[in-house]
Structure formats: structure tokens, C-alpha cells
Write a protein that binds this DNA or RNA. Structure first.
Lengths: 270, 270
DNA sequence: TTGTGTGAAACGATTCACAGCT
DNA sequence: AGCTGTGAATCGTTTCACACAA
């Protein structure tokens, strides 16, 4: 999914494939669970099952990190936990800021999974003056005016944007100008960032739309026909080329059903 | 990202690549914005920029849907909005249930982006009896006991799981038994589902870990050395093969720093 | 002339299958 | 005897580059 730009071929120590990197946290989670149950070793087969991938893929993935297993035996759980944590950079502490403390921002602030993985919520920031000082997740919300100060004083390199779509680009630019080089974007917008900045996005409604696509397929052709028949005639889709609002009225009726705001994200700005 | 199993080669009308499907919502969002500004046509170049992809990819993607453009001119915005909406199955209304009304569940319930895209939150369900009846996003929370009834009465095929990790598998099984065939899983666990059921997962901490990986790279070799030196000697990583908690104590010190609960998701169950 | 639509080439990721180590 | 590690085959995705239509 939309990782920002450039993963500079320069400092690329040992090129671990992006697809592999994306699975390391999965393995780590499964390994942590095993570690808690004091399981000493796992086979690629067992671990793969726990992580929800197949064993060949897992072994290939691990082979990029080095040869951390023992033939005929399997992998040492604790050792692997350490190696993957180190590879992911989780042996150091990452202070993060969350900008936009609406519903979603608050949920993120309360998310236990961050703290448990080497991430520390250094500050909560919101543009609403009324929010300032209010405690969320045991931490006072700070005003956007102090964003730059907060970033630099805490040495923050990772920022989370949970603002409405309209504010995201501006917030992103300020974060970047202040020193942030990695952004997790929950706002439903494309963030434009300079080279050297990584962006990952999470869009809740996009995931649902992908599910809807497959769901529609499952329903078979009957359902598709029904849906098509609901609006216009099955064989007569909206006239193309007929630009402007005229054609749109009929065509987009069902499709562009939407609130007055178009693209409101999961936060309440005020 | 972890789409469930089988996309049955059987009913596969015109095989649209999965990667393309995953981008359709992106195009749709960009097109909707253009439509609101009453822009009649776009070139692949312009639309690609708005969606954050390159134009060759966009044209290839659209070529799987059919030839909806006009050479030398571009694409008719309204027409494309309709075609993509239809392809994604958004011309019909999808009732969804959200299970687990903690911080995250509440944020999802309030998310405007669902309603605006053909999804209707049919019910909010939580296991906590104290939550029952409480209004969240203008809708009373219902108790898990009624899950099956709610699913069938509303004809729900898509479920969202926002429960703690421990409850997710069980909730998933009940959803599926009741008729749900697509699940969006926010709980940090691997969901095991039978064939025919699609699962997509969103894991907030995984995204951050991926960012941390790249962030670590950016810091260069110096930072890596510092991190390694923090714990053990740079050249002496935790002894492997030394199974059990003994080796783990030193090895996982920084890595397995975690709350008492291990894997708590962004919800408060109680 | 402009910008789509698409074969063909390049690339990356996954799977296969088995040699090699314990 | 068992399980890792990995080349080689395969598959899917992206990019290139240009014929073709408006």
C-alpha cells in the first residue's frame, strides 16, 4: 500500500524486499505470543500458520535477514524475536505525535499496541482551542500552534495524521518542515510529500470498498443484474460524453450519494 | 494486504487484477472530488496525479474495466464515477455491523466516509451489558447475544471487528455462521476463516512498525550502531539456541517491552 | 496533435522442489 | 529423519513505448 516515495538505493544496506518488511511485524506478533507461552523453538510450518502465511514464504523472508534457523530443528523463538525487532528498529524507542484528536485520534491515543511495540505517544495535538489542555488517554491535548516546538523538543520523526481530509496536507507540511520524515496518514487524501519522506496510509472506507467488490462477485450474476436494473435499464448505462450536471443526475444518483461534506474522516475536529 | 482466501476462479466474470481493484476506490475518490467541482473531463495524467499513482498504471487499470476514455480527449468524469462505482458494487447499499464498540468501534461508527460510499451501519454490537442501549453515533448499542438475529434480519454480509484480540476469532465465527462473508478485522490477530469468506485486516501498529523500519534506514549506519550498542555489545547479539527465559531476559529487554496484556487493541471492552 | 489503449519488456514476489546441514 | 535455506520456475504487477483514434 501507498508507501511514499524513495527508499533511497543509497543507504540500502542489505536490500530486504518491501513485501518481506511488511510481514515482519506479523511474524513478530506471532513470535511474541509464543515467547509468552515460553515456547523455545518453532518450525517454519508452525510459525507460518500462526502468522497466517505459508511456510515457504516465511523461510524465504527469513533468508533475507540471515540464517537464523537450525536445520532439522527450527527457529529459536527468543533469538528470532530479537533479530526481527532489531531489523524493524524496535530496539529503540520512537516518539510519535498524533495530530487531530477526534474520535479516531483518541482511539489511537488509547491504543495499547503502540506502547507495547517501542512506540511512545509523545504528544497529542489538535487545532481546536477548546481541546487544549483536555486530558485524552491521560495526556493533555496541545494546540497546533506549538506543533513545531513539540516535534523538535521531543525529537519526533514519526507523525500520525488523524485530522479531517481538508487539514491533512497542511498538517503534513508542517510536520515535515519541523523534522518528521515518516507519516501514517488516516485522512482520506493523497498527501504530497518531498523525497525522503515516507507515507503510509490507512483508509477505512477503501478497505470496505474492496470487500464490497468481492462481495458483489460472490452474489453471482443475478445480484449484479438486480443492482443494474435498480437505476437505469440494464443495457443502457449513463450516456457518456454528455458532460456536466445533466447526465450526472441520473448516472451518479446511487453512486455519489454523500454527505454535505464529501469526504469526512473518522474524526470530529471540534 | 491479507485478503482472505479464495476468490473463486468460478464466478470470475472478467478477471480484474487484485492490485487494480485495490486502486479503484482511490480513483473513485479523486473523481468524486472532480465531479463536485463540476469538472467535465480529465486526462489520465491529471487523474493519476490526483489519485497519487502514475498515468500508465491508471490507464492499464482502466483498460481492465473497458474502454471508457476518448483518445485525444480524456475521460468523462461522471461516466467514470458511475462505471467504477458499479464495478465496486457501490450502486447497491451494503448494511454493515460493527462489533466491539470501544474507542475504535465508536470512531468507526461516527465515520462519515462509510455512509458516503454506499455503506450503512446497520447495528453496533458489544459484549458489555453495560453498553447495551447506550447511544453511539445516534444509534443504540446492542448486545452480542442478539448478533445472529441482527445479522439475518438486516441481511448483513459485511462485518467489522473492532474487539480486543482475544475475542476476535470467536466473534468472527459467529458472524460467519450467521451469514457474513466479508470481514474487516481491526483486531491484531490472524482470523481463521473458511473458504468463501474474505478478510481484510487493518493493523495500526503494523503500519507504524513498517515506518520505523524505513526510518531506521534513513538514520544511516550511525544510528543503527548506537541502537545496537545500547544493549549488548555490537558484535555479540543474544546467544542463540539458549532456549528459555534466561537468554530472553537480556535479549528481548528492549524488544519485548510490553504492557501486562501483550496485545491490547484500540478498544476498551468495558 | 493529443492522449488513450495495449502489446511487449522489465521487474518483483511467490511457489516449487530439493540439496545440505544437524 | 527432519527442517532449513535457496536456486530456479512461475506468476502477477508495473513500466515502456508506440500504434491508433478523435
Amino acid at each position: 500500500m501507498a508507501t511514499g516515495r524513495n527508499h533511497r538505493p543509497a543507504t540500502r544496506s542489505r536490500g530486504i524486499p518491501e513485501a518481506t518488511v511488511a510481514r515482519l511485524p506479523l511474524y513478530l506478533r506471532a513470535l511474541t505470543a509464543l515467547s509468552e507461552r515460553s515456547v523455545p523453538t518453532v518450525s517454519s510450518e508452525e510459525l507460518a500458520a500462526a502468522a497466517g502465511v505459508n511456510s515457504a514464504k516465511l523461510r524465504k523472508d527469513f533468508s533475507y535477514l540471515g540464517s537464523y534457523g537450525t536445520r532439522g530443528v527450527g527457529y529459536d523463538v527468543e533469538y528470532l524475536v530479537y533479530q526481527i525487532s532489531r531489523e524493524l528498529g524496535l530496539t529503540q524507542d520512537w516518539p510519535v505525535v498524533i495530530v487531530g484528536i477526534g474520535n479516531l485520534g483518541a482511539a489511537l491515543a488509547n491504543y495499547g499496541g503502540f506502547a507495547s511495540r517501542g512506540f511512545r505517544v509523545a504528544a497529542l495535538i489538535d487545532a481546536d482551542p477548546a481541546m487544549a489542555g483536555k486530558p485524552v488517554a491521560g495526556m493533555p491535548v496541545q494546540h497546533t500552534d506549538d506543533l513545531e516546538k513539540i516535534i523538535s523538543e521531543n525529537g519526533v520523526h514519526i507523525g500520525v495524521i488523524a485530522t479531517p481530509a481538508g487539514a491533512a496536507q497542511q498538517v503534513g507540511e508542517r510536520l515535515i518542515a519541523a523534522g518528521v520524515t515518516s507519516i501514517l496518514n488516516f485522512a482520506p487524501t493523497v498527501l504530497s510529500v518531498p523525497d525522503g519522506v515516507d507515507v503510509r496510509k490507512v483508509d477505512l472506507s477503501i478497505e470496505l470498498q474492496i470487500l464490497a467488490f468481492h462481495e458483489q462477485r460472490k452474489a453471482g450474476e443475478e445480484a449484479a443484474a438486480v443492482a443494474a436494473a435498480t437505476g437505469d435499464a440494464v443495457t443502457a448505462p449513463p450516456l457518456r460524453g454528455a458532460a456536466g450536471a445533466g447526465a450526472a443526475a441520473g448516472a451518479g444518483a446511487a453512486a455519489s450519494r454523500k454527505g454535505p461534506d464529501g469526504d469526512v474522516p473518522a474524526v470530529m475536529p471540534a
